[in-house]
Design a binder for these strands. Structure first.
Length: 494
RNA sequence: GGCCCGUUGGUCAAGCGGCCUAAGACACCGCCCUUUCACGGCGGUAACGCGGGUUCGAAUCCCGCACGGGUCACCA
């Protein structure tokens, strides 16, 4: 066999009717990984035959999401290649030719049934406890009958003629051999009355003409595969190999749907998750690495990936684990990058102005992110900590216990000494703050607890939180003094 | 409803007939670290859906049942 015959060609073929979902991203990823691993070709095309719901905007969004994740394609939309065009609506002429062949050979025929007629047939079958399907009313129309329908102005669809009594066996790389009987299938529509092919037809022509060697897609396509196989056979086309990967479920064990909250890649991008964390996480849904290691870059994934280790059972999307993985990558990321990521969320929180930032502001963001990094699962959470670090106002003590801390007899002297030291400090930074705090315990001969806790509550209203030597410099001299003053007067009034 | 797929701890999963008195990870709980919390370290609780076979031996193979899911569109 020549090299060219052996080259692996895989594809991701989303329908541009919405954002890229987590499940779609995983399908794309698995295809991409296999192509990378084997030096094959990864193609992205668009299945936009649903004119009602498809949009260029969605297509663009999906492509952007793939790029953001780092999933690159070397052939297809916006990239080009020898097998284009890569949008189904731009390939109509091609489908027409194949339709003609099927019509000629008798493997397909025109059907003039109206929606009402079909619906009535469906209901009747359901009432009899049978599989709702098309029974083949128009299978053998005479020319006269056809002419009469045409005269009525009916626009026909083209249906594929399902052979009787045939068994279709699919060799699936994930599921093994799966057998279907042709008898339960009705003749299905391959070309709609507006001349646009349906998915099951177009996908066959595309995969075939693009020389796809492996079709890796979601399990929801498994039941449709025998229909596609029949078309390959009728047309005498070479069939790709199949691999159907299991679905991703929500916490209730059902297929992830919009109602479960964040199901699109963009949702996570907006919340400030890192793309490498998402990739790592979804790779682990339905695929198990050979060793103990759980952290994989895209390159490492491509090295380690294989269909043999893809599991048959569906996986539940576990946000906890995503968060853990994301936190891991955040701790490794350069502070500059994290600061950029934090920026939009801090703006939204109203603590940073729009427009260009001063170098001091940039430094402040870096300091801030650094101070709270270990408590973050994803970047949008930076908003939850601003009250510690921003503003002249200190929140009321969070609890009775916190209020109690401020009732200690040493508190007022601790606070006024702190105010003195902060006011006179040459430079307020982490180091100098440590010195100040230590100095207070020394000067007043107090235990650490009697110093640190009241200061914490006086400055933040909270019993817990980030290190004081992070809070104080970031808060800034004025805010610290103002917060101290505020607490002092609260104590005085109590 | 017919057809198809699946079923190991709460979750992701290893396991491909003896190495299993079933690995690892997330979550949870406890302890340690930290003059707070978090991070980190150490430890713990927790699973082969049920019933039949096959076999000297089954989480692993076969059959049935149950449960979950997918599909049966002029959606993809």
């Amino acid at each position: 066999m020549r090299r060219i015959d052996m080259e692996l060609r895989v594809r991701f073929a989303p329908s541009p009717t919405g954002p890229l979902h987590i499940g779609g991203a995983r399908s794309a990823l698995f295809n991409y990984l296999l192509a990378q691993k084997t030096d094959g070709t990864f193609i992205v095309r668009s299945e936009d035959t649903d004119r009602e719901r498809s949009s260029r905007e969605s297509e663009h969004n999906i492509l952007e999401a793939l790029r953001w994740l780092g999933i690159q394609w070397n052939e297809g939309i916006e990239v080009g290649g020898e097998h284009g065009p890569y949008r189904q609506t731009e390939r109509l002429e091609l489908y027409r030719k194949y339709t003609e062949r099927l019509l000629q050979s008798g493997d397909a025929y025109h059907c003039y049934c109206s929606e009402e007629e079909l619906e009535a047939e469906r209901q009747a079958l359901i009432a009899q406890g049978e599989t709702p399907r098309y029974l083949g009313k128009c299978r053998n129309l005479t020319t006269g009958e056809r002419a009469r329908y045409e005269a009525e102005g009916r626009k026909p669809v083209v249906r594929f003629r399902i052979p009787e009594g045939e068994q279709i066996v699919i060799h699936d790389h994930v599921r093994g051999e799966v057998a279907f009987e042709s008898d339960g299938m009705g003749d299905f529509v391959i070309v709609k009355s507006d001349g646009i092919p349906t998915y099951n037809f177009a996908v066959v022509i595309d995969d075939s003409t693009m020389n796809i060697t492996q079709v890796i897609r979601g399990e929801e396509h498994l039941s449709n595969t025998p229909r596609q196989v029949l078309i390959y056979q009728a047309l005498g086309l070479k069939m790709p190999e199949f691999a159907h990967i299991s679905l991703i479920l929500n916490t209730e064990g059902r297929k992830m749907s919009k109602r479960d909250g964040d199901t699109a890649v963009i949702d996570y991008q907006k919340k400030g998750y890192l793309p490498e964390a998402i990739v790592n996480f979804i790779a682990l849904l339905g695929w198990a690495p050979p060793g103990e290691d759980e952290f994989f870059t895209l390159d490492k994934l491509a090295e380690a990936f294989s269909l043999e280790r893809v599991s048959k059972s569906p996986a539940v999307f576990d946000l906890n684990k995503l968060n853990w993985i994301n936190a891991h990558y955040m701790k490794q990321a350069p502070l500059e990058r994290l600061a950029d990521l934090a920026l939009p969320h801090l703006r939204e929180a109203g603590v940073l102005p729009e427009g260009e930032l001063s170098p001091e502001q940039r430094e402040w963001i870096k300091g801030y992110v650094h101070a709270i990094l270990e408590r973050l699962d994803y970047m949008a959470q930076v908003r939850e900590f601003v009250h510690y670090f921003v503003g002249a106002e200190v929140p009321e003590p969070e609890s009775a216990a916190a209020a109690d801390v401020l009732r200690g007899e040493q508190v007022l002297s601790v606070l006024s000494l702190l105010a003195d030291k902060v006011e006179t400090a040459k430079d307020l930074n982490g180091e100098s703050t440590k010195g100040i705090l230590k100095g207070i315990t020394k000067d007043l001969k107090l235990s650490g607890k009697l110093v640190y806790m009241p200061i914490r509550v006086a400055l933040t209203g909270q019993m817990h939180g980030p290190e004081l030597y992070d809070i104080i410099p970031l808060l800034g001299r004025e805010n610290v003094l103002s917060r101290i003053k505020q607490t002092q007067s609260r104590i005085g009034n109590a």
